[in-house]
Nucleic acid binder design. Sequence first.
DNA 1: TTGAAAGCGCTAACAA
DNA 2: TTGTTAGCGCTTTCAA
Lengths: 324, 324
Amino acid sequence: MATISDVAALAGVSTATVSRVLNGKSTVDTELVSRVREAARALDYRPNTVARNLRRRDSSVLSLVISDVENPFFTAVARGVEDTARAAGYSVLLGNSDEDPDKERAYLELAGQAQTAGVVLSPTGPGTALPEGTPPVVAVDRPLPGGRHDAVLVDTRSAARLATQHLLDQGYQRVACLTGPPGVHTAEDRLAGYREALAGRPELVRRSEFKAAGARQASELLFGERDRPDAVLVANSAMAIGLLETLAQQGLRIGEDVGVVSFDDVPWASLVHPALTVVRQPAHEIGRRAAGLLLDRIGSVRGEAHTVVLAAELVVRGSSTREV
Amino acid sequence: MATISDVAALAGVSTATVSRVLNGKSTVDTELVSRVREAARALDYRPNTVARNLRRRDSSVLSLVISDVENPFFTAVARGVEDTARAAGYSVLLGNSDEDPDKERAYLELAGQAQTAGVVLSPTGPGTALPEGTPPVVAVDRPLPGGRHDAVLVDTRSAARLATQHLLDQGYQRVACLTGPPGVHTAEDRLAGYREALAGRPELVRRSEFKAAGARQASELLFGERDRPDAVLVANSAMAIGLLETLAQQGLRIGEDVGVVSFDDVPWASLVHPALTVVRQPAHEIGRRAAGLLLDRIGSVRGEAHTVVLAAELVVRGSSTREV
DNA sequence: TTGAAAGCGCTAACAA
DNA sequence: TTGTTAGCGCTTTCAA
């Protein structure tokens, strides 16, 4: 690979001039500009971004640390981040923390050491701490403890309340809530919304990790008991899979025997029968807004932390009604 | 952030000694080792990987350029890559080419300029060219033209043949193939397998991009014609969504009226009714093998290109049989 | 075993 | 407008 000195030598100028031409800084004689351009082309020169970043003490890559790459919600967030990052000339380094605080920490360390310009992070839990040297952070989906950081969240509590209320309105009597692990903000928030809607009715709560396997186990317990629920609010789409598998296995008809509302609209929601009623979160927009906030923060270090709270939308389909 | 000089100053040694201690190179007096260690801890020192990479002229990050982050197949490949990369002390820079050769090129440029140690790439198409300065590459899912690069592929042609044969064996008469864009290797391969199984019977081929929307359009055309197919082999899970939506809309019963086999086993395949018969590709293993090949290649620059071809498995469920 | 010194490729003061 | 020079933070000869 040709270096800047090779280009300078071929063009008969100093490396400083080459740098100026290539970065469009200050003004350079048009004659020299074309000589440099030509030399660069002739040598098929590409600037070494590592060297550039070292010198400039920043870079044009953002880190994105998410808790589950196989979750379509986070995948859509990632696209949102990538889209606005790209438009601003940034690229995105993705890390999958897999809900593991150790992995999360490793990726945050990397973000700092690798001179990443900033990070979009969906924290694994309340224990998330930012290592020394971490660049500006925007939290998504879940807030960072301390509230000193920008965040893009969803009003998932109201959504859970509305969803639960909807099930009650449809005549379901024993509405259960299948939510995520204790301490995880989204899990607690959805649970809180559920409780609000219940308004004193007996509650029926089960927890598992945000994966299909855990939700299947929890569902089996839930429906193995004497006082079965006749409706379930489930906290994400992976868990919905575990729940629906269990219902099918037990011969329970969705909608008719058991009303279901799941968080996250997924492409297959309309393909199951009856179609799945969901709480649709604006995942792509979350990513776009987060990247936007981060870019602002990188541009000018203003003080206050901004928290953007987006609304979720209840999309009613067949799984939450008996009038099929 | 503390630098290596700060540590050296505090420990009363040279930066060279600090470097030696931190990298475990050559032998350093135990006394000095502990002084350096302590100084590093006191200052909460973290090496600047950018500077290190510049000097060492390599790095411990791999690039992964895939053609669609929202496709569960590629997401699973990504996990495979990440898992083995992490185990070897590498991290992964993800780029989403979105089937766009320009984006792909941009990410490949980045991989080279950012001194990435290697790249795992699912090429967008036959036009994919590697820019000057691209590190070692291993192709996944689709081969790179020229055959000079390592690749991890799936024998998708045999799988398509078997899947088609299975539909014929089940008594379907007019089997159609809904495949990807012309020139895309996987699209052509699956089509070829379909044709082999047809063995002279009239073929019925439609193409679209590998997305739900395109497949829906194509399906509408396919089922709007006089001579409708009574079975379809569809080339990926996103396209399957478009197809199933169309069938539902037209009131056609899956399995009974129209047999369906789709590529890629997805979590929701068993939730639709009847459950979806699929060709299961070992996505996670593809990722693991690709990362393994890449790490080998990075370790020692041996000549020959290796191509690993993995088998796919037909998983028969209800959508491809009439005996529901 | 240790330190001095050079330099990875680039950018940014500072002079000219 | 251009070139000279001094680093960014680290690793690695080369001497001592």
